[in-house]
């Protein structure tokens, strides 16, 4: 009994597209994560490349069902962390131990901080700040690069035109296949998506 009161599952396909509007792609709606995953495997096996699943939460195992390659993010984060360690060391060594004079745009002079007879190069005492900056650089890089790789922030997206799609952040599961995909043919892709037994299929304009 899958009657949806809020979003009647009519498609816009049979209506002629307004002049100048280009097709962004096809959107199919599913009710459960299991249905979505079964469908995602078929889309993957059909050879589509420019397609995506949209879910209200991270569905376990969907990466495999979609054939997503593991992200390189951790490698970048590692190097960001290493940069933090080195930067913290240089900062402390320069400002607290050697009277270095270095040209960095202007002449910059370090400060030989001698206090309580402690050695100038107090590596053990420098470790806490090195640790903190390692974490700081890694975390900043981690979040920034994650959003950058995801192409976010992107406040507008053609999918936001679909009223039905609003439930992608609530309780429904979607597959979108973009018109840019080499295998995309409006009629054929629609038929293909229908064969996956979704609740509804919808064409989304650019």
């Amino acid at each position: 009994m899958a009657t949806i009161v809020t979003n009647p599952p009519e498609t816009k396909l049979n209506q002629p597209a307004p002049a100048g509007a280009r097709l962004f792609g096809m959107l199919a709606e599913f009710e459960t994560p299991g249905d979505l995953m079964a469908a995602a495997e078929k889309v993957r096996d059909a050879g589509y490349k420019r397609w995506d699943c949209h879910t209200p939460f991270a569905v376990h195992g969907l990466d495999g069902a979609m054939g997503i390659q593991r992200t390189w993010l951790p490698i970048f984060v590692f190097f960001a962390g290493a940069t933090g360690t080195i930067a913290a060391f240089i900062l402390q060594a320069f400002t607290n131990s050697w009277s270095l004079t270095t040209w960095a745009g202007v002449w910059v002079t370090g400060y030989p901080f001698l206090i309580s007879g402690k050695p100038a190069m107090s590596l053990p005492a420098f470790i806490p700040v090195m640790f903190e900056l390692t974490i700081l650089f890694s975390a900043l890089a981690c979040v920034k690069l994650m959003f950058l790789f995801n192409g976010l922030p992107q406040l507008y997206h053609p999918l936001f035109k679909s009223n039905r799609f609003r439930r992608a952040t609530n309780d429904r599961f979607f597959i979108s296949i973009e018109a840019r995909d080499p295998k995309f043919l409006p009629k054929k892709t629609e038929e293909f998506l229908r064969s996956l037994d979704p609740i509804a299929v919808e064409a989304v304009e650019e």
Partner: peptide, 25 residues
């Protein structure tokens, strides 16, 4: 919300980043 659209390609990197943040915190 930065235009978040629940994309699973996004979720994949998001989950990695979340794990890394947990491991760093």
């Amino acid at each position: 919300s930065l235009g978040w659209r629940g994309s699973n390609r996004h979720w994949h990197r998001y989950e990695r980043a979340y794990l890394l943040l947990a491991a760093l915190s």
